[in-house]
Design a binder for these strands. Structure first.
Lengths: 215, 215
DNA sequence: TTTTAGTTTAACAATTTTGTTAAAACGCAA
DNA sequence: TTGCGTTTTAACAAAATTGTTAAACTAAAA
């Protein structure tokens, strides 16, 4: 067994992620991926058999990672609204790190919608059920205005994710530089919380350094 | 001049739109487009020179059409909130008609971000400026809670558009059939308005037949 | 009817991209 | 060092896709 072990395999995935998720080359060819990783194109086929299978693995791993993060937050023992604040925080920060991740997911899923079903089905634990339960409890206690859990979740996801997808549109319309856009997104954490609950976001949930500098 | 005039050219664009915007084949080949239109593939090159140029034209026309619709609503003499209600109505209905339009726009723009700038630049009239002005006026009159115009617009666009982009995700998470999803989106018109303004949506703005059946 | 301009097609060429394979290079253990 | 399995590469093959061209077709004008 060579010293490289699974090193090269990870390298390829790393670099593919950079191309896809950070640089936005959603249609990057195997050659471009190989170049980015500084290896021979045939290696990609050696490790992953085909481009399609590599995509499959990348998508799976990425979806899984995001799912785990979400679960980590929702399964905590924090009060409901703080969980949501943490969720917003996490999604926005993650989006800043991988600006094209959602574009990738969206377009891959548009290509094969069954993929989502399969991915969700293979795991009995549903974050959506958890939110539904807790939300209903909060509403009964009168701490949140009545709203269907379905719309609540879609509101939340939409407000968090769309601005990431539409980066260049937003930058152009509002004339924002890259750093201004970044700042704008961090500001949005509070805005999203306020828009959903019609009240201020609790301080503790904010982690991003950028936010602190603005305080 | 043959009888076909610009007929075939339009036919090709029509069918390409169906593939791209309705069926979601965002990477449809020239052959697939030709098949859909029932014509020879070479015709596409005859009329559009290259696949790339056809995409360019399709995107331009589509963006222009949407821009015109938005402008039509915003330039009307209705009260501000009714304009917004009409905007929501239009965007959701349009999204129901062309489920993959936003996916197409988003991924084309991710591929060439300058495209947005060029498109916005070539037209001095800015819808965003109009909203900014009117919103500020409403806030001063105390009819709307204070919010930056930038975040207001991003909220609005996000709430309207993301659910269209993430169709299959939403359907899976919430277990919605196609018709249930459709109904869900129509419901959302009111939800979006309420989420943004924290009050009920005025009746008059709703046009979709589905909505009426639910009343 | 012949001409003419525009339209459509089939066949071909070029390019791009993916997938395969056989052999070289490498690291390590016997 | 030699042998062995793994890793990496270059060169090749196959497939898919785009772009070109010359000729056939069509309808209307001369």
């Amino acid at each position: 067994m060579g010293a490289e072990e699974a090193h090269t395999e990870r390298l390829i995935k790393e670099k593919a992620k950079i191309l896809f998720f950070q640089k936005g080359f959603l249609n990057a060819t195997t050659q471009e991926i190989a170049d980015e990783a500084g290896i021979n194109r045939a290696l990609i086929h050696y490790y992953f058999r085909s481009r399609e299978q590599m995509l499959e693995i990348l998508l799976d791993e990425t979806l899984q990672e995001k799912k785990d993060r979400v679960r980590g937050i929702l399964a905590s023992s924090l009060p409901f609204k703080e969980k949501i604040a943490n969720y917003i925080d996490m999604v926005v920060d993650y989006g800043l790190k991988y600006p094209f991740l959602d574009n990738f997911i969206i377009s891959e899923i548009a290509r094969r919608p069954e993929k989502v079903r399969l991915f969700c089905a293979r795991d009995p634990f549903k974050s959506s059920d958890l939110i539904r339960q807790e939300l209903d409890k909060e509403i009964k206690k009168g701490r949140i205005a009545a709203v269907s859990a379905e719309h609540f979740m879609v509101n939340l996801i939409s407000l968090c994710n769309y601005p990431l997808l539409a980066k260049s549109v937003i930058q152009t319309i509002h004339g924002l530089s890259d750093t201004a856009y970044r700042k704008f997104l961090v500001e949005r954490k509070r805005i999203i919380f306020h828009t959903i609950f019609n009240e201020e976001m609790p301080e503790l949930a904010l982690r991003d350094e950028l936010t602190k500098t603005r305080l």
